[in-house]
Nucleic acid binder design. Structure first.
Lengths: 329, 329
DNA sequence: AGGGAGTTCTAAAACGTTTCAATGCAGATC
DNA sequence: GATCTGCATTGAAACGTTTTAGAACTCCCT
């Protein structure tokens, strides 16, 4: 087993445990020669610091938690990549947990994170209730909201303007000559879906919008939505999907039924995931700075952790961007 | 701050800290009445166990590490889902780390896991070197290989037979009348890519196979491969891609150039990710029991952790399965 | 020679749990 | 009433670090 602790290293190097700790945590406090000796011993004995002992004594760990809604959605994997890159650069480890849209799972995950005494938590909340997050804060765990505006002023958040995004999407469809629009969305209890609809309506200025609310935001649901739209009379000539997974399913459903895209129906998605550009009729979409979202959120969180005195809370709102491809040309 | 520890709970409930610990860890040792009293105090004070202190004293944590090669690949997100479900059921937390194909990143991540004193590690290794894994084992951290056969007999692994998979794929293409085959793959230093080629060659029994090795396994790389194949003379009439991301890019590249799929070129991918069924020409693919892979690997690992005495090491090999869709019909 | 200022290192006390031997107590047996 | 048995609870030690006050040493100045 791994019986080599700071104590053994100290003995091997002929110094006290305290000095070894200094080499580990404040190398500048130790003379070059002893430091070299200690470092050699560490390598030779294969010493690995006991993170728990360290956390226990120091009172805080070098880990942050990341809680996402659906790790299967490329949007969140991109965010995750951004988080990991920054955290890893600054010597923090990331504990990733997936709430899979379930509130109870999210709460259990947050409890685990609290037990691990993570330094902070990055979270895309699965609902609007601020209570679990406030509880974390009471315990001294910093919280940054990802893809969701902050509930309160003394909290950081990084989000993208979904109202603008919805508006841009629909304005683009209208400028292409669309007249009968449909919005295919996931549950409207999800803030993102709701905001995008609000944006869509704003662009329409009172003209009608057919809203089709699906229970999930997956390709399968998108395809079912296509079947539904086509089976009812008066099919739309333009469809705005609340995310690219829905849009890809919609695309497949339309093509399968012999509907030409974009000639018969123009189609626009949301998120601009990789697969959007790679689909057979490449998908027009609303791009979000996904990777940046993760990066910036993590930078805010770690700043809050490392400089609690000078840290200024920020609510950052990015603007989404239209990416035109074949599905609306 | 969170100054409420087991000590405060004990005081509040009028018992000793040892009893509180027993309520937490072996509730059956405590009489029903005191247990109820202690549990009430825990709730009332909002006590959260300090995981580090617990790990330090107990010598082991309730966490496992999961190290994957590319969290952006739906194959690995599916595996992750399986891992999470089992771990969560058994009270373990999962620390997810992404090696992004980089050996040095993998090593850094494993070090973090070792520092955290995870109980075990699930890993899809990014290369063939068993040394980092052996080092973990020396430190008493159990290791289960995922999607990779074990290096040694006293180690668990869960994999899928990639040679059979490659053979099945190419046999299917041949039975559809294909004569000029190409294999589009990622780096052949990756075992999976290599094995699938071996299987392909086995099905071909000496007939020629054009191998196109791309540096990445992404849709973009697949599209580039399509351009390359079409620009050279004598294009293939059937293409086998080493994964679905490549295949989706290939599909787009082919369609874009006016090549009909499957009429002009039959196409088969590997992994059967969700997007394979949702693409415009739905993709024939080799399905792997991805979610099961994660589940079974985790069950093996936790069995090894919880019953070190009776645990029998197993090297499990699943068989892949052909899923025929439009791209080869 | 004595003493002050730096520098480098040490010793010992925490951190919050778990564990285990020991204690106390109630009921059963003689 | 004395002794035993078994159960519920306690108290204190231990886990491997970090941290802090201060010891030991060196160098330099008067």
């Amino acid at each position: 087993m791994n019986a080599v602790g700071i104590r053994q290293v100290a003995e091997h190097a002929g110094v006290s445990p305290g000095t070894v700790s200094n080499v580990l945590n404040r190398p500048e406090k130790v003379s070059a020669s002893t430091r070299a000796r200690v470092e050699a011993s560490i390598r030779e004995l294969g010493f690995v610091r006991h993170g728990s002992a360290s956390t226990l004594r120091a009172g805080h760990s070098k880990t942050v938690g990341l809680s996402v809604i659906d790790i299967g959605n490329p949007f969140f994997t991109d965010v995750t990549a951004g988080v990991e890159d920054v955290a890893s650069d600054r010597g923090y480890a990331v504990i990733l947990s997936n709430s899979a849209g379930s509130r109870s799972k999210e709460e259990r995950n947050l409890l685990v994170l609290a037990e691990q005494r993570v330094r902070g938590v990055l979270i895309t909340p699965s609902d609007e209730d601020p209570e679990p997050l406030d509880r974390l804060r009471e315990r001294g765990i910093n919280v940054v909201l990802v893809d969701h505006p902050a509930h309160r002023a003394d909290q950081c958040s990084v989000a993208v303007n979904d109202v603008t995004g919805g508006q841009t999407a629909v304005a683009h469809l209208l400028s292409g000559g669309a007249a009968r629009l449909a919005y295919v969305t996931g549950p409207l209890s999800i803030r993102q879906c709701l905001d995008r609809r609000t944006g869509a309506e704003r662009a329409l200025r009172g003209r009608p919008l057919r809203v089709l609310e699906m229970p999930a935001m997956t390709p399968r649901a998108g395809q079912q939505a296509a079947e539904k739209l086509l089976s009812e009379g008066d099919p739309p000539d333009a469809v705005f999907c609340a995310n690219d997974l829905l849009a890809l399913g919609m695309l497949r459903g339309l093509l399968h039924a012999g509907v030409r895209v974009p000639d018969d129906v123009a189609l626009i998605g949301y998120d601009d995931i990789d697969f959007a550009a790679a689909s057979a009729v490449s998908l027009t979409s609303i791009r979000q700075p996904t990777y940046q979202l993760g990066r910036v959120a993590t930078e805010l969180l770690l700043d809050e952790c490392d400089n609690p005195g000078t840290h200024a809370h920020q609510q950052i709102m990015f603007q989404p961007e239209l990416v035109v491809r074949e599905s609306t040309r």
